[in-house]
């Protein structure tokens, strides 16, 4: 266990983890409780601005990020964990561009001054995947393992913004950390060549036929390669793959009903977490499989 994970992390949930991605937050908090790693939610955080702000007002987009980083810097010495890939990327980009481009920095400085907020110092922004891989490590997870995974083969889906353009979370072309963690825990994962393809992001909402087609391709290839569930690390990926399977089935004539899970749900379950705390009930697709896979024995109920 690394130094960072003993200290714990600041935690930036982002808007999705409070609504459509609630299961991500709930399972993540439960997993970190099981790992005994303290998380402290960033005080009075604001929306990261995601991709939409950048398309309207670049300065405002960086200001949103800068305010969050500024708050984080008021609790020095701890890394800032951003589980949503969009939040992670936007915060990283804010740091990157304010240091790389003087004109961006000047604008952000002026805006922060208007609002009487201090300019952020340096804070390390981390994605939970990378924290689990590096700071916690497969060894520790294996030692804490309480249950086997009965859910069959998994397609690890990394999505885009966690690995691009800031690819130190994992390789931008061929990320493997999620696969390595799950394989270390005894879970079979497929060789999923679409693992970093886009889930269509907000386009599922704005241009539904396009979004659904993209997700159809993702699901079809996962199933073709033998996956029985897809595991994600981003709330947008999860909802896009999870919420439209009925429509996709109707449009394609192929039947899709496959659970789309968050990495902390799977890990948390294997570490002995409970179904409810890990928010499996918030899944839309593949519920009947989940009921079959996730059986809490009587002894476990008593133990937990």
């Amino acid at each position: 266990m690394s130094n960072e994970s003993e200290k714990g992390y600041l935690y930036f949930p982002g808007c999705s983890l409070k609504s459509t991605g609630r299961a991500y937050e709930e399972s993540l908090l439960e997993l970190f409780r099981l790992l005994d790693i303290p998380l402290q939610e960033l005080d009075d955080w604001n929306c990261c601005g995601a991709t939409s702000y950048m398309g309207i007002d670049e300065e405002a987009a960086f200001v949103l990020g800068a305010r969050n980083l500024s708050i984080a810097c008021q609790t020095p010495g701890r890394d800032l964990m951003a589980p949503c890939s969009a939040c992670y990327m936007v915060l990283r980009k804010t740091q990157d561009y304010t240091s790389k481009y003087p004109q961006v920095r000047r604008e952000v400085e002026a805006a922060m001054k208007r609002a009487d907020l201090p300019m952020p110092g340096q804070v390390k922004i981390r994605h939970p995947l990378e924290i689990l891989y590096h700071d916690v490590g497969a060894e520790r997870l294996k030692n804490l393992k309480k249950r086997n995974w009965l859910g069959g083969t998994i397609a690890c889906y990394y999505g885009c913004q966690a690995v691009r353009p800031y690819s130190d979370v994992d390789d931008a072309y061929n990320p493997v950390k999620m696969d390595e963690l799950l394989r270390a825990m005894g879970v079979q994962t497929i060789d999923y060549c679409l693992k970093t393809k886009c889930c269509a992001g907000v386009l599922t909402g704005t241009v539904p036929p396009v979004g659904r087609r993209v997700n159809y391709i993702l699901l079809k290839e996962a199933v073709r390669k033998g996956a029985q569930a897809v595991v994600t690390i981003c709330p947008l990926c999860q909802i896009n793959l999870d919420a439209y399977q009925k429509e996709i089935s109707a449009e394609s004539g192929e039947r899709f009903d496959i659970p789309i899970l968050y990495l902390p749900q799977v890990l948390g379950w294997m570490l002995g977490g409970r179904k409810k705390e890990l928010a499996f009930h918030r899944c839309i697709a593949g519920r009947r499989y989940l009921n079959e896979w996730l059986r809490e024995t009587k002894e476990e109920e008593a133990y937990v």
Binding site: C15, N46, C47, S52, Y53, G55, I56, D57, A60, G205
Partner: peptide, 23 residues
């Protein structure tokens, strides 16, 4: 075309509340 509309509405919401309400 809905994408720019979404971007604009998102912009307004976050500016108003500091957070986004997906609903």
């Amino acid at each position: 075309f809905p994408t720019p509309v979404l971007a604009r509405e998102f912009y307004r919401l976050v500016k108003m509340f500091g957070r986004n309400s997906e609903f």
